[in-house]
C-alpha cells in the first residue's frame, strides 16, 4: 500500500519536473513580436532584419525595440525593414532610412555626436574626477603623516619616561 503510494508520488513528481522544465524552456525563449506572416523566407535576410529591428526604437512605446513591440506602427516599421533588406540594403542604410524620418530618437543606441558627447563621456569624466579626488586625498594624508612625525626623545626625556613607567609597574 505504502509502496504503491510512493510509486504514484514519484510518477507525479516526474510529471511535475517535466512540466516545470518545459515551462522554464518556453519562458527563456527571447520575447519578440514578429508575427509568422512577417518572417522572410530567406533565413539570413530574416536574421539581418531581426538584428536591425532590435536596434530601432518603437516610436510610440519609447523603451521597446520594434522587435519587441506589439504596436501597429512597430509592425509597419518591421515590415519596412524587411522590405529594405529584401531590396538588398545594408544595416547602415536601413538605419539611416529611419533616422531621416524619425531622427536619432529612433536608434536605441545613440550615436556619438556633439549633443550626446556628454552622455558618452560621462563615465570617463566621473572616473577621472574620482581618480583625481583619491590622489589628492592620499597625497594630503601622506603630508600630514610626515608633519606629525616628531623629533625623538632626548636622553633626559627618555630617563623621565622610564622612571614614570617604573613607578607605575611598582604600584
Amino acid at each position: 500500500m505504502i509502496r504503491a503510494l510512493s510509486d504514484k508520488f514519484s510518477a507525479l513528481r516526474l510529471a511535475l519536473a517535466v512540466a516545470l522544465s518545459l515551462f522554464a524552456g518556453l519562458a527563456s525563449l527571447p520575447a519578440c513580436s514578429v508575427e509568422p506572416d512577417e518572417v522572410l523566407p530567406d533565413a539570413q535576410q530574416e536574421a539581418l532584419a531581426r538584428e536591425i529591428s532590435k536596434q530601432l526604437r518603437c516610436v510610440v512605446c519609447q523603451n521597446q525595440s520594434i522587435d519587441d513591440s506589439d504596436a501597429s506602427i512597430a509592425k509597419d516599421m518591421r515590415l519596412k525593414v524587411r522590405e529594405l533588406v529584401v531590396q538588398g540594403q545594408d544595416e547602415q542604410s536601413i538605419k539611416s532610412y529611419f533616422v531621416e524620418r524619425y531622427g536619432n530618437y529612433v536608434l536605441l543606441r545613440p550615436p556619438f555626436d556633439a549633443s550626446t558627447a556628454l552622455l558618452w563621456l560621462m563615465p570617463l569624466i566621473l572616473l577621472a574626477v574620482a581618480a583625481i579626488g583619491i590622489a589628492v586625498a592620499l597625497m594630503r594624508r601622506q603630508k600630514t603623516l610626515k608633519n606629525n612625525t616628531e623629533a625623538p626623545l632626548s636622553a633626559e626625556e627618555q630617563d623621565r619616561l622610564e622612571a614614570l613607567l617604573h613607578e607605575e609597574s611598582k604600584s
Partner: peptide, 13 residues
C-alpha cells in the same frame, strides 16, 4: 491603408 506615406512623414500616430 498600409502606412507607406505615414512612415515617410515620420508619423507616430
Amino acid at each position: 491603408q498600409k502606412n507607406t506615406v505615414g512612415l515617410d512623414f515620420g508619423i507616430t500616430g
